[in-house]
Amino acid sequence: MTDPALSESLTDARERLAAALRTASRPDDDARLLAVSKTKPAAMIREAWQLGQREFGENYVQEALDKQAELADLSDIVWHFIGPLQSNKSRTVAEHFAWIHSVDRERLARRLDAQRPASLPPLNVCLQVNISDETSKSGVTLAELPALADAVHALPNLRLRGLMAIPAPGVDPREQRRPFARLREALESLRTRHPEAPLDTLSMGMSDDMEAAVMEGATLVRLGTAIFGARQRP
């Protein structure tokens, strides 16, 4: 039996995404919910899975490993690593995740490529862009992005899928849309640069700015609080 509060919040999140897609005149299946489950127990992830959610985002390597072990019977879960990654923990991500959203340097990409098991398909990669030029955040600049994309695209065990960003907070919807528009334009430029790559992913938009992100083409929106409630620090 699932928690009625979780069922309600997940339904609300789905309806909110559907409404945003309609407002943007986009198809109903043009963007997906990534349930950000960091600091939440495996039991809550299992409940969300029972409610039809399949993609989950984690920020902390050891916490994610513990949850993956507890949920090993759910073979169709798709795990995304979305947090900053230290090079010494790259092997774990290469071996246990389907996606990583936070590649921001060539050295990390090369480690992930070398450490990806041959038995697994290529690791799906989003490059993290510091779209608001904040010194407190990870990510490459827009000027550095083409060179990093070239390097990742050349690595056989990685699949370059798109871009991720966490813009500076904004309240006005027009203000929120500006950095998302820059990220969309950057992806369009990369598609021209690498027309053979499956560059189909814009990982952008969270609980407070999802609608603005969808208006600018988000294909994965990362919702945590809106689905699972307020987080506690691990």
Rank of each mutant, 00 (worst) to 15 (best):
E15D: 13
R16E: 12
L17R: 00
A18H: 03
A20W: 00
L21W: 00
P27M: 04
P27V: 00
A35D: 02
V36S: 11
V36G: 05
S37H: 01
S37T: 12
T39Y: 05
P41A: 13
M44A: 10
I45M: 13
R46M: 08
Q53I: 10
R54K: 15
E55C: 15
E55W: 13
F56L: 08
N59W: 02
Y60L: 11
E63R: 09
K67C: 01
A69W: 08
E70V: 14
D73G: 14
D76F: 06
D76C: 06
V78W: 12
W79C: 10
W79N: 09
F81W: 08
I82T: 05
L85I: 08
T92C: 15
V93R: 03
W99G: 04
W99R: 05
I100N: 03
S102P: 12
D104K: 04
R107C: 06
L112A: 00
D113K: 03
A114Y: 05
P122L: 08
N124Q: 10
N124V: 12
L127M: 07
T135S: 15
G139K: 00
L142Y: 09
A147C: 10
A147R: 12
L148V: 01
L148H: 03
A149I: 01
H153T: 14
H153M: 13
L155P: 04
M164P: 07
P167E: 09
V171R: 13
R174I: 10
R174N: 13
E175V: 15
Q176G: 08
Q176Y: 00
F180S: 02
F180P: 02
E185D: 14
E185L: 06
L187S: 04
E188R: 13
S189R: 14
L190R: 03
H194F: 12
P195M: 00
P195W: 11
L199Y: 02
L202N: 01
L202D: 02
M206H: 11
E211W: 01
A213E: 06
A218W: 06
L220D: 13
A226S: 15
A226F: 00
I227F: 00
A230N: 10
P234Q: 08
